[in-house]
Amino acid sequence: MEIVWTLLYMLVFPGFLFLTTYGMICEWVDRKLYARFQSRLGPPWFQPEADFIKLLSKEEIIPEAANPVMFRLLPLFALASVLTAFLYLPIWNTAAIYSFSGDLIVVFYLLTIPTLTFFLAGWHSTSLFATLGSVRNVTQLFAYEVPLLISLLGPALLSGSWSLSEMNQFFVERPILLLVNIIGFFVALIAVQGKLERVPFDIPEAETEIVAGSFTEFSGKLLGIFRLAIDLELVVAATLISVVFLGGSFGLHPVLGFILFIVKTLLIVAILALFRTVMARIRIEQMMKFCWRYLAPISLFQLLINILVKAWFL
């Protein structure tokens, strides 16, 4: 019986089936909002599904110089790591399906694996543009990873736990403390934009400079799975921020909690779409400078505030 439930969790809800559907809805919301902000009509609601099915049905070309095994495996690795990360996030109540002390770090590193697969994908396709894009991928990783982790550590420090479920429970009991983390919330939103490789941090995929970055040589199914993994990464990142900084489901009735989860993730997607609309792409060294000179110190400042709050009030 245990196995049936585990499979149900992994494949149907909140695993593969739910997450792919919701990921595509989020992609559509993102693209539609982006279009509306530019006073365009935007794509119809089935656009991500149509793109995905079309990519699955297309011919799949693997360059002669590329490593065919890595080429086929890497998209699956990206997808699997994001799907695994989602199982550790609380969705409809404060307890995640699987949780242990320290799952914050596990989720964080599972979210890093897609970036590494993008790097390897670009590297193994041996094309000039793909190699350049993958080098930028990794360079960018060093810029946003530190501020993001530090800003996630703030709430963890305040609640005295590294487990997402326990952190969520702590903030549900003391919702006023969520206001303390407001700086960290914005730092995380900006850093997550870098993790998802969206404007203004879409430097690895800069289509005006290096064609399509790491994915230049990818076509058909493989590209489709990579795109799906990016969609899911958007959902997982939005859920992570909603759980850590916005109190997740607030411990309400599961149905209400689930509605709250949808509202909060869509709100975060909307904020990310707004960022994408109002900003232009910056150069890689500008990003390094921005992340290390401003974002990292601000997140450290947030950590300091949390230490003081914990020392005086808790």
């Binding site: 693209r31 279009a35 656009q47 064609v211």
Partner: peptide, 12 residues
């Protein structure tokens, strides 16, 4: 984009 058309950089 309302017809689903997107400009891509690479022929792949």
């Amino acid at each position: 984009e309302r017809f689903g058309v997107q400009l891509k950089g690479t022929p792949r």
